[in-house]
Design a binder for these strands. Structure first.
Lengths: 182, 182
DNA sequence: TATAACATGTAAGCTGTTACATGATTAC
DNA sequence: GTAATCATGTAACAGCTTACATGTTATA
């Protein structure tokens, strides 16, 4: 998976591992993330597989950087992956729901406290999407760079992130009420 | 994680690996799943750690079974895990959203077709929750067995599953319209 | 003077998936 | 007969996390 995300970003232009990590932390954080260790390791592997090439740039007054370029093989691999339609649903894994599932015999107030913490986290996440990520995508520069269509698809995934957070917040409130009513 | 789910189920009563797999496939499938290979392996490990004990039952006319029992150590480990509140959000990973994110240069009809396939999958999932899982939780037997409170928490997690599927379906329709409008 | 941002890597370990492997009974 | 259900395991591999490891420059 991470392989195709890296190819997807590199398909827009050459980038360092550090840049890719930043893209993952902003643009895709609502549906995929990776640690820098995984990204750097994967890029090395991808170079061996001929999906990317790299160039080491020695900088003065700044840390050296290794820039990665997608190859034709890499472009083909990305196109091939996208052309094979997905016929299964993405599976959900949510540790917090595991905790709620087994929380019937916990002190109700403790469970409510935990729900309140989660509510704050999800509220922050939603605000982050609306105040930081959305303006980033709606950037006028994208239109000038011929990335208007791309931005529409990026925005689509963000909309799912927003719907997800809204659903989560609604559910947390409902669940707090349920516990209070016990 | 899977360790605590297994402990959580075994805390309600002794069970085989097969039973646990079935519980994961019904009650927790909307927020956690595991393959049987992982379950059997983990149970063996947990026995070494003294969290569970097992008894091998040789059956006539039926396959032999290994029944697992939670130990006091196991009960403590579960209680301890539940008592430490979660202070981070569960991270989302959704391959389908990755595909949409990078789909701007694909043939629009191909993307719509893929969205339609996903819509059918999510519709089925939602129906499954409402027609199969919900009745299972609302079973009158739970009240008789003193599991009414437990069932309320199980139901809470299912409600999140339902909200998630509803949000996903709404998003799919919105996204299809967005692509048609391009 | 301390923290954040820039920048890249390795290694150990844990988690999870896929495939291999077996075999009985029941329902269609 | 053939598929589904019951039932349990191992092994190889892939994917991911956490910790270790280093060093500069800009900013507060």
């Amino acid at each position: 998976m991470i392989k195709f995300i890296l190819l997807g970003f590199l398909n827009y232009g050459p980038m360092t591992g550090y840049d890719l990590k930043q893209n993952l932390d902003s643009s895709t954080v609502h549906f995929w993330h990776a640690h820098h260790s995984q990204i750097y390791t994967m890029l090395r592997e991808m170079e061996k597989e001929n999906l990317v090439t790299s160039q080491y740039i020695e900088e003065e007054g700044q840390p050296d950087r290794r820039i990665y370029f997608i190859t034709d093989t890499g472009k083909q691999a990305l196109a091939q992956w996208l052309s094979q339609p997905m016929t299964e649903m993405a599976a959900v894994k949510d540790e917090f729901l595991v905790r709620i599932f087994f929380s019937a015999r916990r002190e109700p107030q403790k469970v409510i406290d935990e729900l309140v913490v989660q509510r704050e986290l999800h509220q922050k996440q939603l605000e982050m999407y609306r105040q930081c990520i959305e303006p980033l995508i709606d950037n006028q520069e994208h239109v000038e760079q011929g990335l208007e269509r791309d931005a529409a698809f990026w925005h689509a995934t963000l909309n799912m992130g927003i719907r997800y957070e809204e659903a989560y917040l609604g559910w947390i409130n409902e669940t707090i009420q349920m516990i209070e009513g016990l």
